[in-house]
């Protein structure tokens, strides 16, 4: 299932504004890769370029290559919709569909794509996804209630359940815990640990401890100076990154001396 991602010489633009410059990295399959770095250095932008969500913004474009399992995502013949079915995404702010119940939110990927699902299969899929997102026991008695009625942490796990219900190969998470309390955060971190066996996970986080706790590899993004594009400073196994980073700037950032 899970796939690796090879990024080479990626430049990401908003119109004429170069937001991220010259990224090269390899995201390993069935592992957790974390991106850290100060605000505005292009972590979200880079993450969104991995499943072609970047181009949803008018004028946004990408130069360079992103190769998933030998297939170049930005090849003209590639359908972005198909890419997003394989590479799911969880956003910073929980965004369940307000018109749908918990049950329908989980099934949204199927329903919105007009896939016919038998009732029994749908039930099984909902349960499996909600269990996968550690939410089942909390909501199993109120599946027909609106998804917006859950707490922030529950909503975020609902969004994770929704994302894994379409059975993607890769799961991208953009600061999934930044709006959550410590308990919900730890629930989601546990979840990331479990999901790792089936999915390739890429997570952006503001929280260095979180990166250290959950990830196998870490990428540090930074701005050369304000107004300059963001770039990847260092990409290494998390252990090395947090004990003996190659780059002085990385060490300074991790030890809290700037950023």
């Amino acid at each position: 299932m899970a796939k690796s991602i090879d990024v080479s010489d990626l430049n990401i633009y908003y119109g004429d504004f170069l937001a991220v410059e010259g990224v090269n990295m390899t995201v390993k399959a069935r592992s957790v890769t974390a991106f850290i770095g100060p605000s505005g250095c292009g972590k979200s932008t880079f993450l969104r370029s991995l499943n072609r969500m970047h181009e949803v913004i008018p004028g946004a474009r990408v130069e360079g290559k992103v190769v998933v399992d030998g297939q170049s995502l930005y090849d003209p013949s590639v359908d972005p919709v198909a890419v997003r079915r394989q590479i799911g995404m969880v956003f910073q702010r929980p965004n369940p569909f307000p018109t749908m119940s918990i049950y329908d939110n989980v099934l949204a990927g199927k329903r919105l794509n007009a896939k016919k699902v038998k009732k029994s299969e749908a039930d099984a899929l909902v349960e499996k996804s909600l269990r996968g997102a550690n939410l089942w026991s909390e909501v199993k008695d109120r599946l027909d209630k609106p998804g917006m009625g859950l707490s922030g942490g529950q909503q975020q796990r609902l969004c994770i359940a929704r994302a894994i219900a379409v059975e993607p190969e890769v799961l991208l998470m953009d600061e999934p815990c930044s709006a959550l309390d410590p308990i919900s955060t730890s629930a989601i971190e546990d979840l990331i640990h479990e999901l790792k066996s089936d999915y390739t996970i890429v997570i952006v986080t503001h929280n260095m401890q979180q990166a250290a706790r959950v990830s196998d590899d870490t990428g540090f993004f930074n701005l050369k100076a304000t107004g300059e594009p963001g770039h990847l400073v260092e990409f290494n196994p998390t252990k090395k990154m947090f004990t003996a980073p190659d780059n002085d700037a990385t060490e300074a950032y991790i030890s809290g001396r700037f950023g």
């Binding site: 890419v83 997003r84 990927g109 929704r162 379409v166």
Partner: peptide
């Protein structure tokens, strides 16, 4: 956010608008 949530599930634009 909602449009992006839908796109991220691999839903095409016209279905996102409609649904």
């Amino acid at each position: 956010d909602l449009r992006e949530a839908s796109y991220a599930l691999g839903v095409p634009k016209w279905r996102t608008i409609l649904k």
